[in-house]
Design a protein around this nucleic acid. Structure first.
Lengths: 108, 108
DNA sequence: TCACTATATTCCGATGCAGTAAATCAACCT
DNA sequence: AGGTTGATTTACTGCATCGGAATATAGTGA
C-alpha cells in the first residue's frame, strides 16, 4: 500500500468523482457494449450534446474512457477492464444491501 | 446485470460520491487499521470536528462505514471488505497509469 | 472558398457541497 | 439538577459543477 499524501488523496478522489454522476454512469453503461460516437451517446442517453461532450472530457481526463478520432467522428470506449470491475463491485454492494434489507423485513 | 433505471443510476452515483472526497478517503484510510472514535479521527486526520462528523454521516448513509455507540463515544468502522477493495482497485488503476507513463517517458 | 456536419468550448444561471462557528443533543458524573 | 465531555445539527459563506444556449473548431465535400 502506498503512503497517503494529500496529493494522492486528491487524485484518488478525483478519479472516484468521475464515477459519481448519473450522466457519466449512463455513458459507461452504454460503452459496455462497445465503441460509440458522441452522437450515438447523445441519442442513447438523451443528454444534450454540449453537456455530454463535457462529461466525456471529464471521463477521459480521469482515464476512464479512451478516444479515437476518425474523420468527423470521435469514438469513445472504456479505458480498460477495471472500469467495469469498479461498477460491478459497487453494484454488488448495493445488491447485498437490498437483499439483506429484504431479509430483515420478512424476518422482522 | 440489472436494468439501469434513472433511480438506480442516481443511487450508484450517490455511492461513488461517498468515496469522491479527500477528507472521506482519509477517514477510510484511518479506519483500515480498525475501529476509531470521532475524536480519534479528529486528531488523526486534522479535520474539524463538525466537518468530520458530517463526513461520517455521509459515509454511514452510503453504507460505507458502520457505527456503534458506547457511552459518550461513537465508534466507526469500515462496513465491509468491499470498501477496501474499491479503494485498492482504484489505486491499482492509478499505479498502472503512472508506471505506464514512466515507461513511455523512458522509452520516448 | 463556402456550406455542412460532428465535437468541443465558452458563458451563464442555478444548484450542491465543503468548511467553520454556534447551538443542540446525549451520556456520564458529582 | 447542574456541569462536563463527545458528537451531531444548523446556519452561513464561498467555491465547484451541472445543464443549456450560443459560439468555435475541425474535417468533409461541392
Amino acid at each position: 500500500m502506498m503512503k497517503m499524501t494529500p496529493e494522492l488523496l486528491a487524485v484518488i478522489a478525483e478519479r472516484f468523482k468521475a464515477f459519481a454522476e448519473p450522466a457519466r454512469l449512463q455513458v459507461l453503461y452504454e460503452l459496455k457494449s462497445g465503441e460509440r460516437t458522441v452522437s450515438d451517446l447523445v441519442t442513447a442517453t438523451g443528454l444534450g450534446q454540449a453537456n455530454l461532450s463535457k462529461h466525456l472530457q471529464q471521463l477521459h481526463a480521469a482515464g476512464v474512457v479512451a478516444r479515437r478520432k476518425e474523420g468527423l467522428f470521435t469514438y469513445y470506449t472504456l479505458a480498460d477492464r477495471d472500469v467495469l470491475k469498479m461498477c460491478d463491485l459497487m453494484c454488488g454492494r448495493l445488491e447485498k444491501e437490498t437483499t439483506a434489507r429484504r431479509k430483515a423485513l420478512s424476518a422482522g
